[in-house]
Design a protein around this nucleic acid. Sequence first.
RNA 1: GGCCUCGUGGCGGAGUGGUUACGCAGAGGAUUGCAAAUCCUUGCAUCCCAGUUCGAUUCUGGGCGAGGCCUCCA
Length: 452
Amino acid sequence: MSLRLYNTLTRQKEEFVPIDASNVRMYVCGPTVYDFAHIGNARPVIVFDVLYRLLRHIYGEGHVKYVRNITDVDDKINERALRDFPELPLNDAIARVTAKTADQFQADVKALGCLEPTVQPRATDNIVGMIEMISTLITKGHAYVAAGEVLFGVDSMKDYGQLSNRKLKDQKAGARVAVDAHKKNPADFVLWKLSSADEPGWESPWGRGRPGWHIECSAMSKRYLGEVFDIHGGGLDLIFPHHENEIAQSRCVHGTDVMANVWMHNGFLQVEGQKMSKSLGNFTTIADVLKDWSGEVARFNMLRTHYRQPIDWTVASLEESKNILLDWRDRIGDVMTPRPDAEVVAALSDDLNTHGAITRMHILAKNGSVVALLGSLELLGIGLATLPREQNVLVKKQVEELIEARNQARNAKDWKRADEIREEIASKYYVYLSDLKDPATGVIKTTWEMRR
RNA sequence: GGCCUCGUGGCGGAGUGGUUACGCAGAGGAUUGCAAAUCCUUGCAUCCCAGUUCGAUUCUGGGCGAGGCCUCCA
């Protein structure tokens, strides 16, 4: 069976052929840790986690290397540090911001059912590698020093723009590129910039400074995955300029034709039909979502839409996702040896068609193929463990006492009293009841479940 | 201005050159003290115009429309 992936570089689905099937290598751009991750940030994390799981399924668990970086040097981090911890020295304040944000991120994505990547390098641990790369770029004539910055000269690369299919002269037509007198070409971008005494900085041949955004990923992917690797992923918005510039840096340093063979980009997310923004007040963090919904529901909800499509994140769809999972859980019961369904694997192998996989899983559920259904859920990284099931002992005892009281009232045909108790249970414990008649004996049994 | 996606039922959302999945919601029924849940049945769609074809929702071209990127951004 073959794996086919849509490659942004060629704008088409292609058969995936790893460079080394015993060491499949993937790099995904991770968070810049200046603020809590929002639900849009969760999308690539979940999508590429599914791909990671699929690759492990196909090539073997020990034969896939997944690197997701943490960007912990950035001017936005500095701003946030000054705002939140004005009393601390800047470096300490920065450490606070990045530690707090990175910890929250790890907790968030774990709750969303994501496996830990093989390596999660931090930019600040890789400054030396970046400086080496920048030196090489200068030596090879791809970069120059001007006005306290080291800049990559895009004119030094004949096919700059291959990923975004962008011609440099087209962009000038938009007249939106800031004109900086010190740049040879307005599209030239920063590799290194000098820091003032109160900004974070590292010693370098060009003075004490800090790296530009793009060079981090070039340095970290080289260190852990080599000069050319299999898959590079991230959000759609990273195609330009971030990935374009990563490609320029890495290829020019290494003298290679490509940086990664396959470039994959997930689509954006909207909230209730609107673009997510702080001004609209619909800026939803992962932690906000996890307050109201289990990680499984959130993850499943994300995977119901194909990763390249825009997704509309709504309460209605979360509700639907929850209902589907609860239904499946009830059908599954206890299965000891789950195995993924072959058609589900086939759907995922077609450019990560998670929606097709879920469609197939509906059929499995209907047919009672619980072994395949549970196995498929596991392949998608969706456990059913934290969905509401048994409640704590005290609540359980109280609810069951009330149910007993209600059933006594019902036996006495005191419907008013019975309905009052049902109301009480619903409002107090947030529980709904089902009266089910046993078809064999005709005895009515009352079951209950938490509502969420 | 340039680049890139996408237009399928009330909603979400697949696939296919030849009766248009699936889910939710809706309708009807079974069941129920009434509900809920469950089960069964069921109605509803391929943006427009050309072209290719015996036949297009699917392929090609044009149009109209929506969204994204071109500046930090998943």
